[in-house]
Nucleic acid binder design. Structure first.
Lengths: 336, 336
DNA sequence: GTTTATAATGTAAACGCATACACGAATTTC
DNA sequence: GAAATTCGTGTATGCGTTTACATTATAAAC
């Protein structure tokens, strides 16, 4: 059942059917109703594929993420989805498994699917993914980066104030009297990893507290690395009195390690995490964390992307930085 | 840059280019290489939209879910995604917000997008969604239901043994000596709600324990209803000694309520949840739950769907029932 | 009542691809 | 060496839309 069938049954031309469906151009009241009735009767639904081909736009955006399993993902997706529904866009998912090769393939695939725009939480911040994946596409595909900022590309990004958030958390611990503060941060060459580390360092220096290199550990943003590095930290001759976890997963690993080692929070060691997550408030003790507006990131990024797609926003490249918020709960104690 | 451009540059016809890309039909070694070089040079990527139109298949499946926010979702998605990658299918998301009207619209939209098949976690088990959403589509769209079974439709479903799982959990509590066992179950007219309730009732009766109607509460699968019903239960003149939570979200609500009321788990009340979730193992105490293989459900459902799409599976309608597993942790105590 | 503007509709081409069919060249068959 | 087969390639059509352009019917203007 296609447009031509409807046209035939209604005794009009396909052009008229099209005009009725899209409310474009003039069509007589009577004809309008007649066509609509036939459409309704037949349960006809226009073929989006054909329309996309003709219109050269698919009303679809690609959402590229590194790991479906990270609790971060559904949060962001929630924001993305709500805006997409509002503007009538569909979402095609692209999971990269934190792997650069896969990432390239995903970008290619999405481009091949003729998505109207791309929302990306990139793994490869070097830009190689993009250069290769986008090679040969004449029309500049609108892209908005989420949680990453990539220098040297004329694309928008929506990120959070990693430095500020880490500064805030560290300073909070310092205020409580801690000086032996450890950090398990993410990869230094990635936006969230490096930024949070810098915030930590700045806070320490601002208060004139010496940074002990043994207390500064680089993880890979996964639970396991948090677990192992925390065990390592607590086995030090002089263990830290507080640990700052660089993201949700690593913080969970830290929590688990402390529990397994029988280290009590916050009596023996204070814990602050980055990322609020469902878990944090339910743990015992409830975790103090740097909260970042994940759903908002998704929402704002999508708004931005769609406004680029629809050419409503012609301004220069935007870098939106969202603020974080320290949620004080019960995982830190005052030292005196 | 399209096929015609490549053909022109390579000095061949579009048919040859197509043959090279799809490795269909014969083409001379030399020509093959030449065309491939041009494609590479130009960064040409075939247009999937045009291909889809011509081939009448999109290599895309729609995944309809009721709530992105439910931890259940990413788990299932993980399984779905892995299979889709394997077979080269894309996923378009459809969030229904647990709303029947939205659900209808989503099905329509997905059909309009010409997805090759549908994976559905339905809200409306009456079938009205399908009847309306699919009206007028001549070619039978392959569909696999996840976590729901709908009578009267010739579609496959992949569900879990709700009755068995609930029986197991209830029986476990009975074995520990509990008799005042409450259940907060989901909507009775839904597969997981009704099934789990039945399993509970069967277990009680099997051991000859009277079912107290005050202890049987129907929630809506959301956190809040678990919270409120748990508060209600514990305010009863004779409160239960054990509560069985009908799904992950409601169990969390129950947990929260008990914490807020200062009721100690498992000393004062034992708690068993349905669904394992990241949280469960991290809570204090770690929760005993009925675990169900969510990722497997996604995987198996997708395998089934794709085999239907590609006509590899011509057998009658399948109803796959996956077993559950009781994960005993520390939220239940023996009564004596 | 003729001209002119406007509304209503139809005709046909194009979007980028796969493929049926056609055709000449090369190869095999006897 | 003629007939039959296979190989390599091109031409042209159609998938279901939208839309520029053409055409006819209707209303407005004088």
């Amino acid at each position: 059942m296609n447009q031509r069938d409807i046209a035939r049954i209604a005794g009009v031309s396909t052009a008229t059917v099209s005009r009725v469906i899209n409310k474009t151009g003039n069509v007589a009241q009577e004809t309008y109703k007649k066509v609509l009735r036939v459409i309704e009767d037949q349960g006809y639904v226009p073929d989006t594929i054909a329309k996309s081909l003709r219109m050269r736009q698919t009303k679809t955006i690609g959402f590229v993420i590194p790991d479906i399993g990270n609790p971060f993902f559904p949060e962001v997706l929630k924001g993305v989805e709500s805006v997409c529904v509002e503007y009538g866009y569909n979402i095609i998912l692209g999971n990269t498994n934190e792997d650069v090769r896969t990432e390239k393939a995903v970008v290619r695939n999405l481009r091949q699917q003729r998505v109207d725009g791309l929302l990306m939480i990139l793994v490869d911040e070097s830009g190689a993914t993009l250069r290769w994946g986008l090679k040969g596409s004449e029309s500049r595909l609108p892209i908005v980066f989420i949680d990453r900022h990539i220098e040297g590309f004329q694309y928008d990004s929506v990120i959070i104030d990693n430095e500020g958030g880490a500064f805030q958390a560290t300073d909070y611990l310092l205020q409580l009297g801690h000086t032996r503060i450890a950090i398990i941060h993410g990869p230094e060459n990635m936006t969230p990893g490096g930024g949070r580390l810098r915030g930590y360092l700045q806070a320490m220096r601002a208060r004139g507290v010496e940074v002990v290199s043994d207390y500064v550990k680089e993880g890979d943003f996964r639970t396991r690395s948090g677990y192992e590095l925390a065990r390592h930290l607590m086995s030090l001759p002089t263990p830290p009195t507080a640990i700052f976890g660089g993201n949700n997963l690593m913080t969970m690993g830290i929590f688990e390690a402390l529990r397994d080692m029988g280290v009590r929070i916050p009596d023996q060691v204070s814990l602050v995490g980055f990322d609020d997550f469902l878990l944090a408030a339910y743990l015992t003790p409830p975790l103090t964390v740097v909260d970042r507006p994940m759903s908002d990131m998704g929402r704002i990024a999508t708004e931005l992307l769609i406004s680029r797609i629809e050419n409503r926003d012609q301004t220069a490249v935007r870098k939106v930085v969202l603020p974080t918020k320290l949620r004080v709960r019960q995982s830190c104690r005052e030292l005196r």
